[in-house]
Design a protein around this nucleic acid. Structure first.
Lengths: 192, 192, 192, 192
DNA sequence: CATGAATGAGTATTCATTCAT
DNA sequence: AATGAATGAATACTCATTCAT
């Protein structure tokens, strides 16, 4: 009865957005419910109207990130049979859209990649998916037979993680740019 | 009934070790002084006999990591003038000793690389140092002139970070092994 | 089971009253938040709902005393120009209302006059104000020209302080009574 | 065996002096044993070699003050039978030596007069003694018969207390000076 | 005579969470 | 749909005090 046009879904969404921002900026523990509700223009009990607990909001955000990421990966699988010279372009496109996704909601990316223990799992899953793809492509002869794709995938994820944090989310590079550079580096190295 | 051979320095060291382990396993906030002292076989006031605060121990650990790392890096700078075919070997050696250092005290590595806000600074500094080295070598003609060393350095740090966490600290790979693979990847890529 | 008519302002007031009583009886350090809230029928967190800290409540009480006192003094300034024979009556009235004020809230008086380091400042201020008044009256010829009003003011404040503690707050004398005796003493002495 | 010329009595004396200073400056609660021993160049256990507890040192200091004061008062009792014109001089001398005593050891005076609950008793006793003397002199006809000596004594003690704190211990006035002024004020008042 | 090392007991403060309205 | 008021449970930190040497 306080806010006239009060709308449950809107309040919930606002809380979620603010929560994401707080978690992203301050981490899980330093984030206080009191801050979230205050920034959302609500009071503490209202928070519990929409979420079961602090952990619950966090999980919801994490889940959101994970499912979006999973979906993206599922769509972007490299099909076999493309010609050798198209591989770089194809991979660039995949990475590009991955960076685009990571750029879309910085707070969510921060949470999904860097906050909480689940972030670790997320990256493990991402690594596994990438490893699968790389191995398939290796089997098809696109990559060196002796390359250890488990390690390469790990390297790549570390690279993506760091570039996301330092170049993408800071606005220093565009998704396409980053994708290009990564592909170049990983395919041909930097030797003169 | 006090410990007979009660020795201050020993108690302090024990507290420091346990603290490192707790911080590494649980992060800064979840780590409780009560757990630390209990594991060290002491009581809470004893903790404050040796450290000013929870933050102070953490800072001491972080400082320890940072100074050790700095020292390592300072020592390991590539000298210019080595012949072209020795560059890979030289870099491998540097990375190898870096991984060895990171492997030596896993808890400290965890803290210095992954816990707290300073970890971010640590990696930035590491990135900057690496970037310097890479640029010097690029100037000497070892690497492609058009490679963006800022980005490469970032990629490399991400790679190191991830390999440390997933391969090194889990005991899956040796420092030498990882160094080799990273150098191979970054110098020549994985294209067949 | 919350109090039915739970009312924030009332709770706050209750806390303030109890706090004043505890500070007055036990001094700042011996006063425990746990005692205050317990006597106020609340729990510890509730205390922090209304006050920032133990120090903050104390300061609030001290401020309350100081501002009330300041107001009283401001109102009671002796106007010049009254006839010589009215001076004693006038001063008696002023002291009387001062004692009345000090009697009104014994706990607050205890705090403002005897507890904490600010009590010292309070008395210094009071002394300064009284000195001003006495000097003005001296200039008007009501008092001996050679009397050192700085000292007299100090004596008077000591006297007021002690009488308040021993005679007023113990109920042994009324404000009027005390005022009369003080004026008599200070104006004419006790010589036969 | 640490300090070569270590002398128990000397250490004890040093502790006592430092303790007095700390109590005087910071009050009972804020005074820490750790500070005392540190300033005395000793360690905590040594403190307990000479005193049973924090309270015990304080009591010892308080007792010291009280007994010295009691002795002083006992000596200074006004004998009856002196001529009327000598009364002021006699009283001045008494007050003067009282102020001198209070000036001798400022820390002890601070403790005995202003710190702890016993200070209250001290002043009550002082008041009682003064009241006795005044009443005796009143009976002898030196003072007005209708003066309420209970109140006057109280006033006087307040005055002494305040002058000691503000004028004597700050070095602004000498004992003789203060004694004179007080006697003048209390005997003849300030009326022009 | 003195201390290095350790502790029992206490206290302010914080935060997620809940009831009654 | 929302809130004013309140709390359970936890935690960092302090200080006087004590053994064993």
């Amino acid at each position: 009865m306080r806010k006239k046009g009060a709308n449950g879904q809107e309040s919930r969404a606002r809380l979620l957005t603010v929560a994401a921002n707080e978690f992203a900026r301050s981490g899980y523990h330093k984030t206080k419910i009191s801050t979230i509700v205050s920034r959302a223009g609500l009071t503490q009990p209202s928070f519990y109207l929409y979420f079961d607990s602090k952990e619950a909001v966090f999980n919801e955000l994490m889940l959101k990130f994970r499912s979006q990421l999973k979906e993206l990966i599922a769509d972007g699988r490299l099909e076999a049979g493309i010609s050798r010279e198209d591989v770089p372009g194809r991979i660039t496109a995949v990475l590009s859209s991955l960076f685009e996704f990571l750029e879309r909601d910085p707070d969510l990316t921060q949470i999904g990649f860097f906050i909480g223990q689940e972030a670790s799992e997320v990256k493990k899953e991402l690594t596994a998916m990438i490893e699968q793809n790389l191995k398939a492509e290796q089997k098809d002869g696109y990559f060196q037979q002796e390359a250890n794709m488990t390690i390469i995938a790990e390297c790549l994820v570390g690279t993506l993680e760091r570039l996301t944090l330092q170049q993408l989310l800071t606005g220093k590079c565009t998704p396409e740019d980053l994708a290009h550079q990564v592909v170049n580096l990983y395919m041909f190295g930097i030797t003169a």
